[in-house]
């Protein structure tokens, strides 16, 4: 029987918080409540990363997801003021049936892989993990060993930014200038 120490207790607390928040995200009716649960979820995940000695990832998780992306989500939800979310949830069609089917398949796959194909986790060496989690180590690795993937991702993000600007600039061509500009 594993001993219950402080970090186990924290893990159980944060893990159940993650699960509750995820359920809240998909089950709540109001989009704003969903978004808030998602923020809580990211927070709890950040806490779990912290338990795994991954300080940098924990903080980046909070900065990027909770601090920036969800604020943007919330901004859009509030701007559109989705009030008829009730009507949206009542529709069932073929598309939704397929979605449920594939989601179920994916779940079975994940459970199969996790349950049967994952080797037992090797005992973790605390000092090494703590060293890996620091910002310094991650930065060094990113700019030496993983330089190529890092640069590829940078280019990908740049492409996404350019694409967003193009999409946002609706009337960029002379023939498009008279096209409908409202959303």
């Amino acid at each position: 029987m594993p001993e219950i120490n402080l970090s186990t207790a924290f893990f159980i607390g944060l893990g159940s918080l993650t699960i509750v928040a995820s359920l809240g995200t998909i089950l709540s009716r109001s989009p704003v409540t969903s978004a808030l649960f998602l923020v809580l979820n990211f927070f709890a995940l950040g806490g779990i990363y912290l338990l795994l000695e991954a300080q940098f990832i924990a903080v980046v998780q909070v900065i990027v997801y909770a601090g920036a992306i969800m604020v943007l989500f919330l901004f859009v939800i509030m701007l559109l003021n989705l009030e008829d979310e009730q009507r949206l949830t009542e529709r069932y069609d073929v598309k939704k049936g397929f979605a449920i089917l594939f989601a179920g398949l994916l779940l079975v796959e994940v459970l199969y892989v996790v349950g049967l194909k994952t080797p037992a986790i090797a005992p973790r060496l605390g000092t090494v993990a703590a060293e890996i989690g620091t910002a310094k180590y991650i930065g060094q690795q990113l700019l030496t060993e993983f330089l190529f993937p890092f640069e590829i991702i940078s280019v990908l993000l740049l492409g996404a930014i350019v694409g967003a600007v193009v999409l946002a600039k609706k009337n960029f061509g002379p023939e498009r200038a008279t096209a409908k500009t409202t959303l």
């Binding site: 903080v59 909070v62 604020v71 919330l74 509030m78």
Partner: peptide
């Protein structure tokens, strides 16, 4: 006295906006 002090500050200040945004909503 954490190693990532300055990132922690950025993280927490980025959460402060929720208070104002949610109060508005």
């Amino acid at each position: 006295d954490v190693n990532i002090g300055i990132l922690y500050i950025l993280a927490i200040t980025s959460l402060g906006v929720y208070g104002i945004t949610l109060s508005g909503w």
